[in-house]
Each structure stands twice: as C-alpha cells, then as structure tokens.
Amino acid sequence: MASAGESPTNSPQSNPFSTRFIQPGAISYLFPANVNAAQLVERLAKNGWWGEITGPHGSGKSTLLASLVPQLILARKQPLQVTLHNGERSLAQHGETLARADARTIVIVDGYEQLWSWNRWRLRRFCRRRQAGLIVTSHASTGLPPLYACAVDRQTAAEILKRLLPAESPVGQADLDHALAANGQNLRDALFELYDLYEQRQAK
C-alpha cells in the first residue's frame, strides 16, 4: 500500500503507539470545527508575529507547532525551532540556531516556561532587536499575546485513536478512557500506556 507524504508506514507487526507514529508531525493536530492552522497564522500576523500556545502536559502543543510550520512557510516566514528539555533554563545550547534570526524568521521555543524569567526577557529583547517573530509553548500564560490554548477532550482523543489503530486491534476506546483518567488527561502519556497494553495483549 502506498502512503502519501512523509508519514512512516505502519507494518502489520507495528505497535501503533510507537513514538514514530505519535510524535509531533506524525499525526496532525486536530482542530475544532471553527479553527484551522491558516487562521492561527493570520492571528499571529495581526499580533506582529508574536504569540503563545498554552496547555497542560501532553495536550498537543508540540503537535500544534508542527502543524503550524508549513503554514508559516507558506506565509514566507522561516521557522527557527528550539525545543527545551529537562528543565533547560537557558538558551546557551541553541546560540547557533538563534544567530540566524532576522526579520524573515519566526523563533519558536517549545517549552518556554522552563527558561529563567531573566532568559525569557533576554529572548524577547533579542527577537525585538532582530525584528523576528516569536512563538512559544508554555503550560500557563507568560504574558505573550495568546495564540491558542490546547486541551484534550474525549472526542479529539477518540479521533486520534481511530487514526492510529489498525482495523483489528487488541485495545480500544475503553482502554484510552482509562489511560486518560489515570494520566490526568495527558494524551501523550496515555498513548504510551496503551503501547504497553498493546504489547501485552498481542503476546496473548
């Protein structure tokens, strides 16, 4: 079976909850009926290309970012993305990437809340001086113009599950409901829990 685009092919033996199938970019962000990526980029342009995406752990912030990037490129902007991990408090490791920032670029910082407030201020000043755009993700508002607030609802989670699962699967909606409840509505962690469940039930 041929598959269009960059998505990896899911072989019959694949666990559909493997990282390669659920990571940002592998599945596109599911917007509510009245919102789409182009509208968000329009909103971003009105805000001078600055904005923040907020939401709790595993609510799809990074997935949304990945879905916005093609639209930003269509808008003739060059995204420069930095992803912060494990409580990274400064951008020292990302100087080479940020050095390329100019008026055509949008600096994207995934995990902005991890930066010390002093380093957030320095980043904002840096972007202003370079006339670059700035999009950040954070668990709570950090004072930048709000762009979108991510949240996981049962209907969205069910649709993602439907897209991931093969026709016959040892896990289903009830397992997802249970995993979401056990993981505080963190969809990423819930899907990883289903990875283990899938392996266990396949082994039977």
């Binding site: 990896p8 694949s14 666990n15 493997s18 990282t19 390669r20 990571q23 990883f192 990875y195």
Partner: peptide, 9 residues
C-alpha cells in the same frame, strides 16, 4: 533500518 518503540526513533 529504523527502530520502533517508546523512545526516540
């Protein structure tokens, strides 16, 4: 070849 699992690919 590629890996599949719970970690990075």
């Amino acid at each position: 070849w590629h890996t599949e699992g719970k970690g990075d690919e």
